[in-house]
Design a binder for these strands. Structure first.
Ligand SMILES: [Zn+2]
Ligand SMILES: [Zn+2]
Ligand SMILES: [Zn+2]
Ligand SMILES: [Zn+2]
Lengths: 129, 129
DNA sequence: GGCTTATTGATAATGATTGTCAAAAGCGAT
DNA sequence: ATCGCTTTTGACAATCATTATCAATAAGCC
């Protein structure tokens, strides 16, 4: 049976306060910054669990880091700021249809897709040029 | 000025013989297996260069590894078999336009996108059910 | 309160990728 | 072909995210 620990809840709520995607390392730093004594490994485990249970959405940054975000809604994609992590949820039925049809067209089954857009939001663009 | 070395060519041709995406580590193993004495760091550098110059296409596996594939055409995406690594190049102007417009719509700059479809090809589907 | 067992967390281990830098090799000029 | 300058190489160390260990802790149940 899975137990309720303050660590799990801490990660859950910390994720909720984030406005965008964050890495496990970042979230751990944030938690430590607020006085929490939670361990890094626990943050990794909690995030992994949340993602598995569908309470969090995960993706990989272009640099290869795993990023997480609280998310309870259904299938959708994200427009993510490389600077501050801000994530805008985007839906695109066109893309969904396209993915489905291109897979079928080539005889592929059990098709899933990865569709994410990365850039710099209007607030971060001045900081990078 | 960039120089021509047998190492670069070795990586280029080794990539060409692959039917799907491969990691730098795998390609290095393959090269070593055929008697080449090329160094691992050189394989990483060569693949990075090829990707930058547009001669190779790169993406990240779900596990976070960087994968490469020979590719001489312009910007496109892939339909990738989880079973055998087979990759079909796909183009979708619709998706390109969508990515561009959704970024602009939200004030994002320097937008890049990750668009890949994963599934099982017709040859691999029987093996997984 | 105790028992049982999942969970935690400090730390070590892993594994991909990058940095270092002296030695080797490419290329243009001689 | 040789010289000289500059890029490239490669063995090795360093980095960095993530995972594995495993003894200590603490949920949940009686
Ligand atoms: Zn931003
Ligand atoms: Zn979708
Ligand atoms: Zn296949
Ligand atoms: Zn595209």
């Amino acid at each position: 049976m899975k137990r309720n620990t303050w660590q799990r809840e801490a990660v859950r709520t910390a994720l909720g306060t984030q406005m965008g995607f964050v890495s496990a390392q970042d979230l751990h730093s944030n938690l430590k910054g607020t006085g929490s004594q939670i361990g890094l490994a626990t943050v990794y485990r909690a995030l992994g669990d949340l993602a598995t249970e569908g309470e969090a959405d995960s993706l990989q940054s272009p640099e290869g880091e795993s990023l997480y975000r609280a998310c309870s809604t259904g299938h959708h994609h994200h427009l993510i700021c490389r600077g501050c992590g801000l994530a805008v949820e985007i839906e695109a039925d066109d893309v969904e249809q396209w993915a489905k049809s291109v897979a079928a067209l080539h005889g592929f089954s059990q098709a899933e897709h990865v569709v994410d857009v990365f850039g710099y939001c209007s607030a971060c663009v001045p900081a990078v040029g």
